[in-house]
Design a binder for these strands. Structure first.
Lengths: 187, 187
DNA sequence: TGTACATCAGTGAACGCGCGTTCACTGATGTAC
DNA sequence: TGTACATCAGTGAACGCGCGTTCACTGATGTAC
């Protein structure tokens, strides 16, 4: 049955939002279109009215996940970078794959992904870096940029590894060591 | 047809070695048992003579990939940590998913993986850290451990992100920034 | 060392199932008058 | 504002295909004598 244009646009948004979460939780290859559409309260056939292919959805959902993510970052880092780092490296964040940082959850999929996904990643990593950069100590802009990129790598690497080792002592140790090594300090 | 016990053991090893590479390239969900067996020069049916399930293979191939990896590290870091870091963060390493560092290539899969895979990861991350730790500057062992873990996170994060953004300027920039931020310095 | 036979590694067809994608159809929406 | 009809968002069956897994079978290997 047909639906208003506004409703159709809402449906599209819902597919994207759900995919952004489910791809983070299970990976591009870990969930099928049927489940993705069902999660959005629709049936399988309607998918191709909104997207060209599953690869197309992967690229758009990745963008959605990264953008939402970055907007959340922006607000929080403006308040206190050190407090934000602590929250970023918390147990809670480690345990919330689907709604946590999309850089961490999707980087592995992007590394094996299409050019479109990588392009989205490149654009967003740059934006994330700029957000961090503006909060870094020091005056030299090039140096702050460098610090921001290194910090991003440390944050992403430690959260990813701390997920990969399961809920062990090592999982906490990795994040604690990362936090202490950052220019913002151990808090 | 039956085959000598030695030959059967060789076959098993070949399956593991091939899986260790192919899982890194395409992910646990990105390649099927048929292709995995064919890569080892065998047919599909023989698989269950060697492994309990695909999950079982994922865990064992992950272990294989990480162990081989760590042994290579050990030899190279013993010579010059700084030179090794440079090689680790090289374009060549970025472009060689299948034979590159298994921590980077499989961390995302492990984060979504079974308890068995995570246990393997935990054991090996600890070993990697010990290898690095023994090469870190400073006297306090706890501090060296911490430095090693942070360095591991930075290395893994920067290589992963530099893969996820494709072959862009940002890809080099990420690795350069990571290298400069390490206690071993920019070289 | 040679023969007789049980073992079992590997084969390839088959199982049920879910995948990504296509398509004829439905019926409410949006438009023309 | 009301009627007539074209549009098109969403449905659900169907497509061919590959998935992980099972199994009856083959025939060389390994063993017992």
């Amino acid at each position: 049955m047909k639906v208003t244009r506004a409703q159709a646009e809402e449906n599209r948004e819902r597919i994207l939002d759900n995919a952004a979460q489910l791809f983070r939780e299970r990976g591009f290859d870990g969930i099928g279109l049927n489940d993705l559409m069902q999660a959005a309260g629709l049936t399988r056939g309607g998918f191709y009215g909104h997207f060209e292919s599953k690869d197309d959805l992967a690229a758009q959902a990745t963008q959605r996940a990264l953008q939402v993510n970055r907007e959340q970052w922006k607000v929080q880092t403006d308040r206190s970078l050190q407090g934000w780092v602590k929250a970023y490296l918390s147990d809670a964040h480690r345990d919330r794959l689907g709604v946590g940082c999309a850089l961490v959850a999707l980087a592995g999929d992007a590394a094996r992904g299409t050019a479109a996904v990588k392009a989205v990643f490149a654009e967003e990593v740059d934006s994330f870096a700029k957000t961090l950069q503006s909060q870094m100590p020091g005056v030299d802009e090039a140096a702050r940029r460098e610090q921001a990129l290194a910090m991003l790598s440390t944050l992403v690497g430690s959260l990813l590894l701390s997920r990969a080792v399961g809920d062990t002592g090592l999982s906490s140790e990795l994040r604690k060591a990362a936090r202490k090594s950052l220019p913002t300090g151990g808090g």
